Amino acid sequence: MLHTPRIIEGGHIGPVNSAEVPRFSGEATYALLPRLRDLPSGHQADIKVVGIPFDAGVSYRSGARFGCQHVRQSSRLLRPYNPATDTSPFAQAQVVDAGDMAVNPFNINEAIETIEHDALELTANGSSLMTIGGDHTIALPLLRAATARAGQPVAFLHFDAHLDTWDTYFGADYTHGTPFRRAVEEGVIDTEAICHVGTRGPLYGRKDLEDDRRFGFGIITSSDVFRQGVDEVVDRLRQRVGRRPLYISVDIDVLDPAHAPGTGTPEAGGMTSREILEILRGLRGLNIVGADVVEVAPAYDHAELTGIAASHVAYDLITLMADLKAGRKN
Rank of each mutant, 00 (worst) to 15 (best):
D212G: 10
G242D: 02
Y300C: 05
E116M: 14
V58K: 10
L140S: 04
V197G: 07
P179I: 00
L163C: 01
R236K: 14
Q228P: 07
P179C: 01
D190G: 01
S75H: 01
R227H: 10
L305S: 13
V49W: 05
S311T: 09
I52Q: 02
V294Q: 06
Y315G: 08
T137L: 12
G270T: 02
Q73H: 06
R214N: 10
E232H: 12
L317K: 09
M321L: 08
L39Y: 03
D173I: 05
T114V: 10
A45E: 01
G177M: 11
E116A: 15
T272C: 00
F159R: 10
G177Q: 09
T319Y: 03
V184L: 04
I219P: 08
F215V: 02
L280K: 05
A183T: 02
N109P: 09
L255F: 04
A150T: 11
D46R: 07
S311G: 09
T131E: 08
T131P: 01
R72F: 02
G177F: 10
P22N: 08
G42W: 03
L120G: 14
L142E: 11
Y169D: 06
I132Q: 11
G42R: 05
D212Q: 09
E9K: 15
Q73N: 13
L32S: 12
V296M: 01
A183M: 08
P257L: 04
A150W: 03
A64G: 03
I13F: 09
I194A: 02
E267Q: 15
A45H: 00
D38C: 06
S127V: 11
S249I: 14
R243M: 10
G290D: 02
E9N: 14
E275H: 08
Q228F: 11
I132E: 08
